[in-house]
Design a protein around this nucleic acid. Sequence first.
DNA 1: ATATTATTTCTATATTTATCGAAATAATAT
DNA 2: ATATTATTTCGATAAATATAGAAATAATAT
Lengths: 98, 98
Amino acid sequence: MELDKAAVCLSKLGNPARLAMFRLLVKAGDEGLAVGDIQKELDMPHSTLSHHISHMMTSGLLIQSREGRVLRCRLDYQLTNSLLDYLMEDCCNGLQEA
Amino acid sequence: MELDKAAVCLSKLGNPARLAMFRLLVKAGDEGLAVGDIQKELDMPHSTLSHHISHMMTSGLLIQSREGRVLRCRLDYQLTNSLLDYLMEDCCNGLQEA
DNA sequence: ATATTATTTCTATATTTATCGAAATAATAT
DNA sequence: ATATTATTTCGATAAATATAGAAATAATAT
């Protein structure tokens, strides 16, 4: 993971609405959630939610796939894990690592 | 960790300059780094760096202590760990947990 | 007391981000 | 074809964040 990429991902997560959405998707796992499901949970105007979702998509953290008229959202777990790894990379002069 | 607190921390990390600083501090471990050391590594105007440092402090991620005329910066590792834990809390309907 | 080094605060401007109503698009059902 | 449901795009405004020069403060050394 590169610094700028990580910073973009973190900045997307650094918004309460998007962080709440991220957590819903973490819970949902591979099954993911339809935009409408997220909508029900987070209760905000469609346009605002859509804006936040598109932020998550451009960062790569969120992936959408269409199922009929429903758009299903899933986290990119691999990217999510790389991001978390990146944060603790080279921790404590490597003392904590193996 | 509460959602809003986590979002604040993540938003602070979601800036390239601050993320770079965070990573320097992760590497530095308990020893920490003087503001001047960070300055040398990141090479930006004093006022800009100071602004970023104060962001990190108000979020609680960074702790300063004075040593003579030098201010030494350290990460709050406990808070950092809570933050990372929070992101993966209740992952995948708990399937991944014990 | 004065100078030096380390760092912050003040102030202003530029840039980015958030919010959301209204209109538009996409897919399906009648 | 028309209606219905799901979701996005447009467009405008408000709010937050980033940048940095200049002046100020803090600690130490002379």
